[in-house]
Amino acid sequence: MNALSSYLILSALLFSLGLYTVITRKNAVAILMGIELILNAANVNFIAFSKFVTHDVEGHLMAVFIIMLAAAEAAVALAIILNLYNDHGNINVDEANALKR
């Protein structure tokens, strides 16, 4: 097992656990946590490849932009979740099936 594979396996594990969180959780905040796990898995891959394969920092730049997108996405998602809570009294995504009150 070379040094790259340990990072790749870790990121595959993070991605799978994040995907599991996204598809099984009812709570919207928990789903958001799953999305963050998936984005972290992508970042680990980008940086591992930039160290072991391409030898430059362009992968690091992609990771910077992914982190920036994650921050923007978390802020907007939290605002949507707060609205959902005000309308429904809970944030279970399987009950949020109406476009209009």
């Binding site: 958001l32 963050e36 994650a70 978390a74 802020a75 939290l78 979740i81 809970n90």
Partner: peptide, 17 residues
């Protein structure tokens, strides 16, 4: 960003909902 920002947002999300 993650620990100082996003995680705090998530905790706020849990506590507010």
């Amino acid at each position: 960003i993650y620990v100082g920002g996003i995680l705090v947002l998530l905790v706020f999300g849990i506590m507010l909902t």
